Simulated assay, not measured.
Amino acid sequence: MSTDKKADFSGVKTSIDTTAEKVEKADFSGVSTSIDTTAEVVGGSYTVQKGDSLSKIAKQELGDVNAWKKIFDANRDVLDDPDKIFPGQVLKLPPKG
């Protein structure tokens, strides 16, 4: 059996001093929220198929063959060259219009 003494906390006292007022019930009636999402800004996504080009996707999805540049700009994070897209790649689409 050990002869080590254990700490004696029997005389320890504590008190809590706070300046906070007691809150009966929180009132959230004036709280509103909104959700920011890139889906509203981007407009959707498209999975590249064999034989696709940005201009073909632009015509098919946005109704304007010249909108390929908007698709390219929306995907600068994954595309370095507008002529190098591959099947299975998911591209963000800008909103129509």
Rank of each mutant, 00 (worst) to 15 (best):
V65H: 00
L62Q: 02
A58L: 02
K25H: 09
K6S: 12
I71V: 07
G11Q: 09
G43Y: 05
I57D: 03
T18Y: 08
E40F: 04
F28H: 10
D36C: 03
G30S: 13
G30E: 15
D36P: 02
A67L: 04
F28V: 11
Q60I: 01
K25C: 02
E40H: 05
K56R: 02
D81Q: 13
L54D: 04
A26L: 14
K50I: 05
F72L: 11
K22I: 12
D73P: 03
D73H: 10
S32C: 06
T14F: 12
Y46E: 04
I16E: 07
P82F: 14
V42E: 09
T3W: 11
G43D: 03
K13R: 11
A26Y: 09
K25W: 01
K56F: 02
D4Y: 08
Q60D: 06
D80R: 15
F86E: 15
T37C: 03
T18K: 14
L54R: 04
D81L: 14
V48W: 06
T3V: 13
I85Q: 11
G88I: 10
D17R: 00
K22Y: 13
S15Y: 10
D4Q: 11
E24H: 07
Q49S: 11
A39L: 07
G63F: 04
V65G: 00
T37W: 03
G11I: 08
E61A: 03
S34I: 06
I71W: 06
F9E: 06
V78Y: 08
E24M: 08
I57K: 03
V65P: 00
Q60T: 01
D73C: 08
G44N: 03
Y46R: 08
K13C: 02
D83P: 01
T18A: 11
G88Q: 12
T14I: 08
W68H: 05
G11W: 00
T33S: 14
F86Y: 15
D17P: 00
G63C: 03
G44A: 03
K69D: 11
A39G: 08
T19I: 01
Y46S: 06
T38C: 01
S55Y: 10
M1L: 05
K25P: 02
G51M: 01
E61T: 00
G43R: 05
D8T: 12
K70Y: 05
K84M: 14
I16G: 07
D17K: 00
T37M: 05
T33K: 10
Q60H: 02
I35T: 15
D81C: 14
G30M: 08
G88M: 13
K70P: 02
M1R: 06
V23S: 12
K84W: 12
V31G: 05
V12A: 11
S53N: 10
E24I: 08
T33M: 11
V42M: 03
D17L: 12
I16T: 07
D4L: 13
S29G: 04
K25A: 12
S34M: 05
